[in-house]
Nucleic acid binder design. Sequence first.
DNA 1: TTGTACGCGTTATCAG
DNA 2: CTGATAACGCGTACAA
Lengths: 341, 341
Amino acid sequence: MPATLRDVAERANVSIRTVSNVVSGYEHVSERMRTRVQKAIDELDYRPNLVARTLRTGRTGVLALVVPEIDVPYFSQLARDVINSAGELGYRVMIDQTGHDHQRERELLTGGDRTMLFDGILFSPLVTKAELREMNGESGMPLVLLGEHDFDGRFDHVAIDNVQAAYDAVRHLVLSGRTRIGALGTQPAEDYATPQQRSAGYRQALADSGLDFEPALTRPAAHYSRAEGYTAARELLAANEAPDAIFCYSDLLAMGAMRAVFDAGLRVPDDIAIVGIDDIEEGRFSRPSLSTVSLDTPFIAAQAVSRIVERIDDPDREAVEVVAPHRLIVRESSAPGRPRT
Amino acid sequence: MPATLRDVAERANVSIRTVSNVVSGYEHVSERMRTRVQKAIDELDYRPNLVARTLRTGRTGVLALVVPEIDVPYFSQLARDVINSAGELGYRVMIDQTGHDHQRERELLTGGDRTMLFDGILFSPLVTKAELREMNGESGMPLVLLGEHDFDGRFDHVAIDNVQAAYDAVRHLVLSGRTRIGALGTQPAEDYATPQQRSAGYRQALADSGLDFEPALTRPAAHYSRAEGYTAARELLAANEAPDAIFCYSDLLAMGAMRAVFDAGLRVPDDIAIVGIDDIEEGRFSRPSLSTVSLDTPFIAAQAVSRIVERIDDPDREAVEVVAPHRLIVRESSAPGRPRT
DNA sequence: TTGTACGCGTTATCAG
DNA sequence: CTGATAACGCGTACAA
């Protein structure tokens, strides 16, 4: 039976209000009063009831982080950083998985049946812009978009410059002497923004390098998993004119693709160079190690948390767009020359 | 401005009580009444305020999952399954990271300064049994231990048979003809239970196979990361008489160890066979693919969630121990014969 | 079967 | 600077 404010007040012979003031660090409390109350607090091992506080203030101190799947390395890394950043600002984090389910995303965003459990949402969405636009009007819950959505001024939003990131990766392959550069992870038109932007960067880099865009060198992938990367890469290799390099739209796709290349009896990077994007730790220890575009997840997380907290404090603040830095990291999978392995 | 029970009652011209009955699915409500109230609920888009309900009932509908680091593949996989299992029973999940910090673990367990935010804790601890014993008396918060702690009857607890799992892995290496089998991930005496149990299984398997236990073939690791696996394996290889096989106490250690073997100019499994434990997806696509002991995380998660919910409903129920199944999966890293790569 | 009224533990308003 | 007291929105004992 935990002690309440009233218990403390009784014990210290002061009013409940005074205790509350002490607990919440109110300024104008005499030193004598403060120590007297603090003594009672310690003796009773009083801890504020956060639920009651929430009911009163309307703030829960909890943020929701919504991702497709928490066990995708990029998202678990992001979650780690988000939890840490949130903790520093006094927030806790609840994690929801959409499992690639649009309906579930929509529920989460419109409040579903269990609203008011958190103060804001950090959302790494699959939905298209159109859906998003249509959705969030109703709930009005503070929302920050994570990942790479187009910015239309309605939502706070932190992401890297995807077009440029893809461009950098492909350009690097060109400069390494590759001429038949495939892309793995494209998606049907008018769907999600991320693959669209990466494809744009891919095509732009090809064009700037005097290379033709060949649709036969691209393969779609729905979930950006190792398994999808594996099967898609196999298809690519089985085609008439196989690529001599593959730009994968995620590191996980790249891990699958690498394995597919080896199973096909070819070598990375000798026969086929591979570059991913995300910079998950797995790629630093894989054989060969994976060239990739590194995203600064601690930065992304810190920005996202700051933005959402700002918006919670001021719902009418204008939406901002944060562009996180990225940088190409060349490792063995696209290194010129032959690696030892 | 969300609608409240009172608003609905007013609109439907009934008492607040009746609305409450309808919302919580109370049985004895006339059909006419129910539809009338439901109509008002829909019109006002009423959603129960969970915080107020919590204040009243003392139940938050939230579970805490406490792990060292969420971006360790085993834990993120576990988190995925826990979130899914919890969702099926109407619970949400909050994730806390201890970051290998005993102090933080203790805080979380004793309630810290923010108790009452969840109904129970699923705890994957680093702490030793002694610490645990000393800690939980005070808070009385429902607690289920995940992972591989000794069972002392005081806590609910779901884990695999670690001794047997290690035994199986080492025995497999023996049967593959290895004679100098190292262990990677040991820890100083009297610390954590998991490595202790795995060491026990390791030594038992050696003994049963007529092999001597050689301390020089073992290496400690503090965090079970790829990086630690890498450096520890390097040390092992640099020793006078290198091992011809290494049993790693986690898949992540194994991934680092494999890379170290290659960087030393040796081959897996030809020169050194490697077996891990956890069965993370990464090991299915690595080169070579990783032999491992597979833990059934969906089962573990489902059991853990069931146990905690039971305990929430009946705090005085006797503690139970659930032993989750495990099975050895032999892949390329310990396969007899030479792999293609 | 339904209505009334109180309390869960805080914070906030209004006096003093 | 401190005290009394009204909400916050819901569940439920008690009454009808």
